[in-house]
């Protein structure tokens, strides 16, 4: 019974969301805005549930006195600090919350992001090992684009930047568009299967 109700709610909401995209009236806009508001409410509540779950999980790790307890202690301290600092001092430009964001969180995020440079190098090394004819084409295209798009490209050949541009604008774009056409049709079909209850991850 609950499963049927869930499916009816999915069906009605799904069909409405498709219809409101094409038919704009005051009534459909109002219902659409209300549904988005409800999603925000669900998101906010689940964020609280997620935050509490995170604290609970790390508290258990601290109690179990595992080797990683120090990481859990840091996580708990960081979560509590940010919440308490935001509640007491607000989130203004000169607040401790903003200071922690600018001086702790942002540099840590930048550090993680910078790992990409090393991971790109190691992945490229594996990916460009020529073991077959398609791998040779991949490696050749990569070398042309890498060298052609760098300042070094013109030094090698005046034609190389133009060839690199052709590789990006023609074969690469054609392949991307082929994938995107499939993705677009697949998205509609998946959404329809969910709306009609043909495929559902709930019971």
């Amino acid at each position: 019974m609950i499963s049927r109700l869930a499916w009816i709610a999915t069906l009605v909401t799904g069909l409405f969301m498709v219809a409101q995209y094409f038919i704009k009236t005051d009534a459909t806009n109002a219902v659409y805005t209300t549904l988005l508001d409800y999603y925000q409410i669900i998101f906010a509540v689940s964020m609280i549930v997620g935050g509490i779950g995170l604290l609970k999980q790390h508290s258990l790790k601290v109690q179990r006195s595992s080797q990683q307890r120090r990481y859990s202690l840091i996580t708990i301290a960081a979560i509590l600090f940010m919440v308490i600092a935001a509640v007491i001092f607000g989130t203004g430009a000169a607040s401790p919350y903003q200071w922690a964001f600018n001086n702790l969180q942002a540099p840590m995020q930048a550090t993680t992001f910078s790992l990409l440079a090393f991971f790109v190098a190691s992945a490229a090394y594996r990916g460009f090992r020529v073991k077959s004819a398609p791998a040779f084409v991949l490696a050749l295209a990569a070398v042309i684009v890498l060298v052609g798009k760098s300042g070094f490209g013109e030094m090698v050949s005046q034609q190389l930047p133009a060839i690199a541009g052709w590789v990006l604008n023609n074969p690469s774009t054609a392949a991307k568009r082929g994938i995107l056409i499939g993705v677009g049709i697949g998205s509609v079909a998946t959404a329809l299967r969910v709306i009609l209850g043909i495929e559902r991850s709930y019971r």
């Binding site: 991971f119 790109v120 992945a123 490229a124 594996r126 990916g127 991307k176 994938i179 995107l180 499939g182 993705v183 049709i185 697949g186 998205s187 079909a189 998946t190």
Partner: peptide, 24 residues
């Protein structure tokens, strides 16, 4: 379905489902 990230997955993962293969 992220075309930019597909190239990274292809070189770093054992198997990659490309675009709509994920939906099917």
């Amino acid at each position: 379905d992220s075309t930019i990230q597909l190239s990274f997955f292809i070189v770093a993962c054992d198997y990659t489902l490309i675009g709509e293969e994920l939906y099917t």
